[in-house]
Design a protein around this nucleic acid. Sequence first.
DNA 1: TAGATTGTTAATCGATTAACAATC
DNA 2: TAGATTGTTAATCGATTAACAATC
Lengths: 211, 211
Amino acid sequence: MKYFRIPDVTIMRLSMYSRYLDRLQKAGVTVTSSQDIADNTGSTSAQVRKDLAYFGGFGVRGVGYTVKSLYEILSGILGVDRDWNLIVIGAGRLGMALSLYQGFNRRGFTNVGIFDVDPRKVGRKIQGRPILHTDRLEAVCEEHSPDIALITVPAEAAQGVADRLVGCGVRSILNFAPTVLQVPPPVRVRNVDFTVNLEFLTYSMVSDFLE
Amino acid sequence: MKYFRIPDVTIMRLSMYSRYLDRLQKAGVTVTSSQDIADNTGSTSAQVRKDLAYFGGFGVRGVGYTVKSLYEILSGILGVDRDWNLIVIGAGRLGMALSLYQGFNRRGFTNVGIFDVDPRKVGRKIQGRPILHTDRLEAVCEEHSPDIALITVPAEAAQGVADRLVGCGVRSILNFAPTVLQVPPPVRVRNVDFTVNLEFLTYSMVSDFLE
DNA sequence: TAGATTGTTAATCGATTAACAATC
DNA sequence: TAGATTGTTAATCGATTAACAATC
């Protein structure tokens, strides 16, 4: 079905298109255009059409796209037309914020466990479910087979956690620790690095004066 | 000084190189190579040399790079050789996590205010300083002239906040709300979107079966 | 000198943009 | 038909990779 490689940036834009379509649908809008999608996702109309064209022709010339059907198509492509189990390792402030983030639930992600090694945190309840000791990682993975793990532990601990997750059969890792994780394919890692983004901004501000 | 455009991805990698050099420095390592930097930042040696070459030749052929001097050079390029004031708008879990994140302090970012509109949150102290009502945004900006603002309010409120920040003279925005913000140049916005990253992973897992 | 590693050029690869025929 | 908007091709632009002379 996939005959050539699809750019990573295309996939990320599809996620944004998809969520915009969801908004339109909830607002009762039934038809839209590549231009409208672009305006509301920071893209361009040509880009939107190109991104969609990797997967097929889903619109009607002269008319546009049906919100409902395009939304369903994108959901299928992205794999958000099903539920995914995720776990969070590290019950610090960020781990808690992510565990309780409603945006994930709304997109079909179910949190099946949050872990920490700090005995003061273990047992504390969040949303009625207790924080578990990281010792129990393997047992919980056995039971719920989460596909995705979010790592919010300190940088030094992140690789160790990643290794164990791989052993547990976790297939994807979203890493918030500022480290480069080594995992064997086909396990995948995405890094979310706040500092990189902040420092990109400082660079921009400094270089404003140089141009 | 800047005669041609430097790729955004180069700047983001420089931030990672810089933080790796900081680690090396603290570990007492004095000399490194493009290969070593690459291995520890998920880059390649050619990429590292190319990224640096946009700004000059900072190494010694046959030898490598002096950790201390390269770190200082990168700090200057990125603008992290000075302090930056930042504010956080939205004292939800994510806003709190970011406000208290030590990684920012370590890189010279100083939090000069955290705001919320919820009267139950306003006045509550974090790190000895109270959460302020968003009404006081303009007054605080007047006093501390923050260069950077982190937006962690709900999506619906984000554009309104951004408009006010622009009015306050804030020059850069790091936006965590899942919306596209419109700001007039030269104000800059970076979006950090957790969901995009999660859905990129789900896409990867689904498409594994298709290749 | 022999070995190592940079800085830089040229080749390759990939993504974006522009343009327009197709078609409702 | 006139107007609108898609799907697709070709042109452009930009980033990565490979390779190697320069140089310690």
